[in-house]
Amino acid sequence: MMAVTNVYCVGRNYKKHAEELGNDVPTEPMIFLKPSHAVCAMDDGTVELPQDRGEIHYEAELVLRIGRAYEPGIRVEDLAASVSLGIDFTLRDVQSKIKAKGHPWTAAKGFRNSAPLTAEFEFPGLEALGEAWFSLRKNEETVQRGNIKNMIFDLQTLVDYIGTHYGLGEGDLIYTGTPEGVGPTRAGDVLELYWNEEKRGGCTVG
């Protein structure tokens, strides 16, 4: 895998996902970070996850890799070097506890291997992205299916917001949010990410 610098993640960027968890729909992008050590390859191997900290939920996402430094007015097409699919694994029981206390999400979101990623492919343009669907299959059953047209904040809005507030540079990743259908995964589950009907990567949960 290519070197990763910052890993930005967007929370609650699909209305139905926010609703399924009983969360308010945000009025501006909700950004959190994962360590670069959270990223690992979805190359049909085993991804080891902490199985002793309550339920682990999968959240399938479209991921942008940034290819150059952000500048005001730059188009997302010119900023993104490539696209991939990824999973934002979440320790849901841990998250519920720390949210109730008003604590940061790092313990629930930033653990090692919490951001597996498929092989990259060329950014096809916004129109082509909008015509495609990404999906997650769990043990051969489709559990999530998403399209960027259903995002609350579109890709241009996301890169402008993150670039302006935090900065964006070569090697940064943006996990752009998950559609509805998130749920628990356990050791032994096989998770596979698809772009339309083409498998892009998979893993066995360890």
Rank of each mutant, 00 (worst) to 15 (best):
K97C: 02
R68H: 04
L126N: 13
H165P: 02
E77H: 04
R112Y: 09
N23P: 08
A115L: 03
T178D: 04
G183L: 03
F121L: 06
G183W: 01
H37L: 15
T204C: 00
V182D: 08
T90F: 00
N6L: 01
T118C: 13
T204P: 03
R200S: 02
G102A: 10
M1V: 10
M2E: 06
R112D: 12
I152W: 09
K138I: 02
T27H: 12
I56Y: 00
S114C: 00
I148A: 12
E180M: 15
E120Y: 01
T204F: 01
T157K: 14
G67L: 08
G171N: 10
N196T: 09
I66W: 00
A38I: 09
T142K: 11
V63S: 02
Y58S: 10
P29G: 03
Y175P: 02
S84K: 04
L155M: 01
A119Q: 14
A69S: 14
L79R: 00
Q156S: 09
K101H: 09
M2T: 13
A69E: 08
E140V: 13
I87V: 15
M42P: 13
E20K: 11
A3W: 11
L191A: 11
Y58N: 03
Y161L: 04
G130L: 09
I162R: 11
D93N: 12
E28T: 07
W195C: 10
P50N: 08
R112P: 07
G146S: 10
H37K: 15
M42I: 13
A132K: 09
T90V: 04
A69L: 00
T178K: 05
D88H: 03
C203D: 01
Q95C: 09
D93K: 03
D43E: 07
H37Q: 14
V143W: 01
G11M: 08
W105M: 00
K109Q: 01
P179W: 09
Q51H: 12
G102L: 06
D78I: 00
N196Q: 10
P184D: 08
K101G: 10
R186I: 01
V25K: 15
R200Y: 05
I74H: 07
M1P: 14
E192F: 06
G202K: 05
G22L: 11
T118K: 12
K97W: 07
E71N: 12
E127N: 08
L79M: 05
F89M: 00
T178F: 03
E180P: 11
E127R: 14
F134A: 07
T27D: 05
S135P: 06
A128R: 11
T178C: 03
Q144R: 14
L126Q: 13
T118I: 05
G171F: 03
E71M: 08
T46F: 02
A187E: 01
R12K: 08
G169R: 02
E170W: 09
T27V: 14
V7R: 06
D52A: 12
A38V: 12
M1L: 08
T5P: 11
L91G: 06
I148E: 06
R12W: 06
